[in-house]
Design a protein around this nucleic acid. Structure first.
Length: 415
RNA sequence: GCCAGGGUGGGGUAGCUGGUCAUCCUAGGGGACUGUGGAUCCCCCGACCCGGGUUCGAGUCUCGGCCCUGGCCCCA
């Protein structure tokens, strides 16, 4: 027996219905913000991702050499491909560009709850905008997409300048170490690390900063900084938009290209992998040979959203089972076509079994049964049974279709 | 890469202090039923993750691998 590769999943029709439903709601949110969808290749030059994230991530990627000797990788994320697309083909489009995407990504990691080797991201990039308004729009779209999906979660907004200003004197390695400990809120280990650096004086301010819940508290720790005005303006816009959010100045975001405002969202019931969205303002285009273009974007972990949502109620369409004997089979196909033409879901019984067996099957999943045996076929009518009420009538096909579609066709209207 | 727990018909399970034809539910197929409801009854289908070891004998003990679940690391 062949197994599916580790960390991948199969989706049956009922799961795909739920996923499509949620995906559709997120797409609609993006559309309403004026974002258009982009799609990039499932694999790219390996260098695209190492330029963005450093050579270390090769170990976490599905990288390979193709038959032409090219170093390629399955995309581990979608921001770099989107910016590559921008640099390749869209530099001259009027800015800002509003793009969104929903696609699968691949990472060679140990699977756990909400983490798979093939997973889907929904994200957006606002390219070529450099303002408080742009920052606010990205946060608001992320929130709109998650809310539209039906998710209850917590939005945290921060800014990298504050932490960076406190750590400005530290060298690269020390700063990374301190930020990693801060990210995990391991304050004891953090104190030890700072003492070892001879910077025990930083512990107090860092502690204050990460626990700050207002802008005044946070800038009280760091003093005024470039970017303060923009962050205050962004916060004002988010509040004006009625967004439910809180500040968190301990948000680290792994990479250097983030330039200012950053945000993350967390949902309950997700175990260790509870972050459902991450994003912020960044500059990436110049790494791929474009102009230094300020952008802001985010990515939502679609699979985690699905896990957090649990059962997703999917709007159910009317199902009509079409039953027939051998004499009625041709008419049954005609009836099914008419039902489908009216937008209904018509399921022909293909079993060739007795009508009793067909009715048994129909009763399990259908709302109505249209029945055509020798009698109906020769009379040019159909049996139309409401499976909820058990009432069966003999009707012309058009009227049966109209009944199933929820419209009453009165004799008076026909005259 | 590390840790813990786990893998028995399609799904869910019992057996797990070696030895009955491996239990039950459900799903699926057929029939009772050649024109009408989810019922009932009968029949059928179908499993010990893979490989090595111990043993007269392994689903059961043991080792390795693969996979699953959760956690660590990482998290772009």
């Amino acid at each position: 027996m062949l197994q599916r590769p580790r960390g991948t999943r199969d989706f049956l029709p009922h799961e795909m219905e739920a996923r499509s439903e949620v995906e559709g709601r997120m797409r609609e949110a993006a559309r309403r913000f004026g974002y258009g969808q982009v799609r990039t290749p499932a694999f790219e030059e390996l260098e695209l991702f190492t330029l963005r994230s450093g050579p270390g991530i090769v170990n976490e990627m599905y990288s390979f050499e193709d038959k032409g000797g090219r170093a390629l990788a399955l995309r581990p994320e979608l921001t770099a491909p989107a910016l590559r697309l921008f640099v390749n083909e869209a530099r001259v489009l009027p800015k800002p560009l509003r793009w969104y995407y929903v696609d699968d990504c691949f990472r060679y990691e140990r699977p756990q709850k909400g983490r798979y080797r093939q997973f889907w991201q929904f994200g957006a990039e606002l390219i070529g905008a450099d303002s408080a308004a742009a920052d606010a729009e990205a946060v608001l779209l992320a929130d709109a997409a998650l809310r539209a999906a039906g998710l209850d979660y917590e939005m945290k907004v921060g800014h990298l300048a504050l932490l960076r200003s406190l750590l400005a004197d530290l060298d690269e390695g020390a700063r990374r170490n301190v930020m990693a400990l801060l990210d995990k809120r391991e304050m004891d280990a953090l104190g030890g690390a700072l003492d070892a650096l001879g910077r025990g004086d930083l512990l107090g301010p860092l502690r204050e900063l990460v626990s700050a819940t207002t802008l005044d508290e946070a800038f009280g720790v760091t003093g005024s900084l470039p970017g303060e005005g923009r962050l205050r303006a962004t916060a004002g816009l988010l509040e004006a938009a009625g967004l439910d959010f809180s500040f968190n100045f301990g948000i680290v975001r792994g990479l250097d290209y983030y330039t200012g405002m950053v945000f993350e969202g967390f949902a309950a019931n997700l175990g260790a992998e509870n972050q459902v969205v991450g994003g912020g303002a960044y500059r990436l285009a110049h790494l791929f040979g474009g102009e230094d273009t300020p952008s802001v974007g985010f990515a939502i972990g679609f699979d985690r959203v699905m896990v957090a949502l649990g059962e997703v109620p999917v709007p159910r369409r009317t199902v009509v089972a079409v039953l027939s004997t051998a004499e009625g089979l041709e008419d049954a196909f005609r009836a099914a076509a008419a039902l489908r033409g009216a937008g209904l879901r018509a399921e022909l019984d293909l079993s060739g079994r007795g009508l009793g067996a067909q009715m048994t099957r129909a009763a399990k999943g259908a709302d109505f049964a249209v029945l055509i045996g020798a009698r109906e076929a020769s009379a040019g009518v159909v049996g139309f049974k409401n499976l909820a009420t058990g009432i069966q009538e003999t009707l012309p096909l058009e009227e049966a279709v109209a009944r199933a579609a929820g419209r009453e066709v009165s004799a008076a209207a026909d005259r």
